[in-house]
Design a protein around this nucleic acid. Structure first.
Lengths: 126, 126
DNA sequence: ATATGTGCAAACTCTTTGCATGGAG
DNA sequence: CTCCATGCAAAGAGTTTGCACATAT
């Protein structure tokens, strides 16, 4: 079981760098592609392991976008939602959060959180 | 390529029955379990093929719930959203749809639709 | 020096596809 | 009787894990 990841390796630095440079949530493949520019020999499993451990440390948060698979982004950001482009398949941040949402739950259900995802075409794909 | 499915088989009837009886979106495994009560020999691939073709016919619609994988439900229902219970992993319908949501998109982005998912504990798991 | 992280390959989960057989029409 | 749909098993996508070797400390 891998949860600690205390050592500062080239691979781990390259993965962190990818997120610091990205303005949007990244999929594991996007992280691999970006980080391989710095460490070409980087393996897929290392990306998965580091993304998982950076999550446990609270540095990354997981974003599950309907129809878009898993993504990750810096955890420090204020609560917000996502826009998935159906043309280029990239995910973007949407600032703000409609307060009204959690009151929708059926009676007797206890809502602890919510996700809102828009989909359509991004500014570059319109 | 399977898209037509014009014959009325025992398997297909059992799969339709499962959805007609369900009050909530069903995962492929839930469909298999329900439909096997009527046709024990039913195979997984048949569920996937029929669910796909019932979708193409417009009888089912696909529901992709963050953290909950793919589900399907009768297409006839009015637009609504979902509640995923983190304890029993079942998905439930949430009536209504906050109008405010699609205006959130960044400028230049064209939103064509949206999903809203609540998560927490359902009435049975509170 | 030594324990931890990496890279590869195999295992796993979920879904799709190829093919011979069973059954709807 | 003729094709189409089924069931099985193998193949794919995405993710996780076991193990020997490399390397940060």
């Amino acid at each position: 079981m891998t949860t600690s990841m205390q050592r500062d390796t080239r691979q781990r630095r390259a993965i962190r760098r990818a997120f610091e440079r990205a303005a949007r949530p990244l999929s594991p493949d996007e992280v691999l592609e970006q980080a391989r520019r710095l460490v070409p020999s980087l393996g897929r499993a290392t990306v998965y392991r580091n993304v998982k451990s950076l999550q446990v440390e609270g540095w990354l948060s997981e974003v599950d976008i309907p129809g878009g698979g898993l993504r990750y982004e810096l955890a420090e950001r204020p609560p917000h939602h996502y826009f998935l482009c159906r043309v280029c398949k990239q995910a973007f941040d949407v600032p703000g959060c409609p307060e009204c949402v959690e009151t929708l739950g059926p009676p007797g259900f206890e809502a602890e959180g919510h996700e809102v995802t828009l989909h359509g075409r991004c500014a570059d794909c319109v």
